[in-house]
Simulated assay, not measured.
Amino acid sequence: MSALVNHVPRCDARDVDRAVRAAHAAQPAWAATPAAGRAAFLRRIGELFAERGEELAQTITDEVAKTITDAREEVFEHAAPAYRHAAAELLDASPAPLGAAPLPGDAVPLRRRGVIGMLTSHSFPAGIPSIAIAHALAAGEAVVWKPSRHAPASGLLVGELFAEAGLPDGVVSVLPGGEDVGIAIAEHRATATLVLDGAPAAGEPCWPAGLGRELERLARSRPRVVLLDADLDAAADCAARECFHSAGQARTSVQPIFVHERVHDAFAAKLRERAAALRIGAPGDARTQLGPLRDAATRACVIDDVDDAWTRGATVDQYGSDDALFYPATVLTGVTPDMRVVRSRTPGPIAALARLDSLDRLRA
């Protein structure tokens, strides 16, 4: 059942203009801050991520229905370390003192670009932005960031950590909002570089003119191939992890899986066993392995894609709850190229298996 998680402000193009102007004004002083000073800020941000990581993980779980185990992994193993790693890389890459002879293999000084616009999806609402922002800050850049419309509170909480660390005003701005905010950031004349995570297929319609179709093409299905000599247990473990992680909603989820016809049935049986063994439950329960989908629109999309596959001849095996926003772990066999689960990425816990008689057929 859906519930109100939070109230957040909704920014517009005027807020974007103010934020980009503030970033443009703040960036030269930030870039002029000695590397040791920028590294100290980065280390402090990483410490705050660790200190308030449980709060951030819970916010991610509440907003996007990621299991608390996955949310904690994102925060503590990816987001928090990103700032420490960027600080270390910054000091390693800093130019030698004036007059010092360069050593063989010295890093090339970082090239600064100015104001970076960043548009991110809901899949990893703290992890991927942190990796990008940490390295932008290390390089002396300023960032204007629009978090996913599905995870605005997570983005704002990350922004709180920047402020708590004492990051100068204007260096990073967090602007929750809709399509108009993303377009305004991307098309602002003072935005020097654009960082994109996600695509229109992820429900993030915020791309500037001309980029949408290409991004959608790049974000389509991420296939895997199981060959005749594969370790089927290892392959099934990998497939289950990639297809059912975050209820299949992460951008790293895989569809379809091309399986050599001579091992197809054995592999499918092993994958069904793993789907049936998943523990279904509330995302806030640390024991949960498969939680609900993000919202009703996502669930409707998954239902439509699976119905399309079934109508076109696929066999559907499902395991788990089909109540409220839950969708069962699903293994599709007999998948063909005309099905939507092959032509685009279905945002749900779907493993779509297609028979493969040779690599030549796959290349075709």
Rank of each mutant, 00 (worst) to 15 (best):
M1Q: 14
H7C: 06
P9L: 15
V20M: 07
R21K: 15
H24Y: 04
H24I: 02
A25F: 10
A31I: 09
P34S: 09
R44K: 14
G46Q: 02
E47A: 11
L48R: 09
A50G: 12
Q58I: 10
E63R: 03
E77I: 10
A80Q: 05
P81A: 03
A86V: 03
E89G: 14
L90Y: 05
L103S: 12
A107H: 15
R111I: 10
I116R: 01
M118F: 08
M118Q: 15
L119Y: 04
T120G: 02
H122L: 12
H122G: 07
H122E: 07
S123P: 09
I131K: 02
A142R: 09
A142I: 06
V144W: 08
K146L: 08
L156G: 11
A163S: 13
V174K: 06
V181K: 07
H188M: 15
A192Q: 15
A199G: 10
A199T: 02
R213C: 03
E214G: 14
E216K: 13
R222V: 04
R222T: 07
L228F: 07
L228D: 09
D229Y: 08
A230V: 01
L232R: 02
A236D: 02
C238R: 01
C238L: 13
A239H: 03
E242W: 04
G248Y: 00
P256W: 01
E261P: 05
V263I: 14
V263T: 11
A266L: 10
K270D: 06
R279D: 11
I280R: 09
A286L: 15
R287E: 15
L293A: 05
L293K: 07
D295E: 11
T298L: 06
A300R: 11
I303V: 15
I303H: 09
D305K: 05
D307F: 04
D307M: 07
L325A: 10
L325F: 08
F326E: 09
P328H: 04
A329C: 05
G334T: 00
T336G: 11
V341L: 05
S344E: 11
P347K: 13
P349L: 01
A351P: 02
L353N: 06
R355A: 11
D360Q: 11
